[in-house]
């Protein structure tokens, strides 16, 4: 566990800290809205992965295959929660009928494929490289889609009439602080496998940057919640 903390240049501690702050702020400014519930679930689940998830992974390290399967499945569920939370918030701000239809299709596809992925992950007959390839592809697709939606959001705010102050809009803060994450995660997925064995230093720097970008997502959520408006605004 200590190796993980120092190996990530202490960014894992930063992520956990940001998650705790985010959960506290969400609960303190609680609104009985779907967006708030989804963001609380996203943050709490994130905290679970970074604390108990990692603890579980290191505890089961002697059972390598099971540990990897649990880790991969936790990441898949995290990706599903992430896409649900982000698309719910973003689609409320992007006024496009066609995009709404596409989004509904993607959500149905993600929901349908998740059980298949989880079954594949726990199938001992499937090679671990294939398992990792499948889950990485899923995460890559999910984060790229969120990244595209964020890009569309930024285009849409300049197309609509600027009646509301942007600094008071929660969606703006979530999108702004998530940009780095949506760019860094696909790059991390693409580069990580290569540097895992080729260069351990670069590998750890990439992981650290990924964690840093994730902590910004939680800072964005906290800032958005402090706007004291519905998160979909």
């Amino acid at each position: 566990m200590h190796d993980l903390i120092t190996g990530s240049n202490y960014t894992i501690v930063l992520v956990v800290l940001c998650q705790i702050i985010s959960i506290t702020i969400i609960l303190k400014n609680w609104r009985s809205e779907k967006a708030h519930k989804l963001m609380l679930l996203y943050t709490t689940y994130g905290l679970f992965i970074f604390t108990l998830g990692h603890y579980l992974f290191f505890s089961l390290k002697q059972y390598y295959v099971t540990a990897i399967a649990i880790n991969e499945s936790l990441n898949v569920v995290f990706a599903v929660i992430e896409i649900s939370a982000f698309t719910h918030i973003l689609m409320a701000s992007i006024n496009s009928k066609s995009l709404r239809i596409i989004n509904r299709g993607i959500i149905i596809f993600v929901t349908a494929i998740t059980p298949v992925l989880l079954i594949t992950i726990f199938n001992e007959k499937v090679d671990k490289t294939i398992k990792r390839y499948i889950t990485d592809s899923f995460s890559f697709f999910e984060i790229t889609y969120i990244g595209i939606l964020i890009l569309i959001y930024f285009i849409s705010i300049f197309k609509s009439s600027p009646e509301i102050d942007l600094k008071k809009r929660p969606t703006f803060w979530i999108c702004s602080f998530s940009i780095l994450y949506t760019i860094s995660l696909p790059l991390t997925i693409l580069l990580l496998e290569h540097f895992r064995h080729a260069n351990r230093d670069i590998f750890q720097i990439i992981v650290s940057l990924h964690y840093l970008s994730l902590s910004f997502v939680y800072i964005g959520i906290s800032k958005a919640t402090l706007c004291k408006r519905p998160l979909t605004n």
Binding site: I157, S176, L180, D201, I205, S208, L212
Partner: peptide, 27 residues
Amino acid sequence: QLTIFLIVAIVLITTMVAFIITVLYFY
């Protein structure tokens, strides 16, 4: 390794902050 990480992190954070300020300015 930490130095490299910090340099890259500062560059990325600066870029992100610059992006937010630019969006806010034009908006």
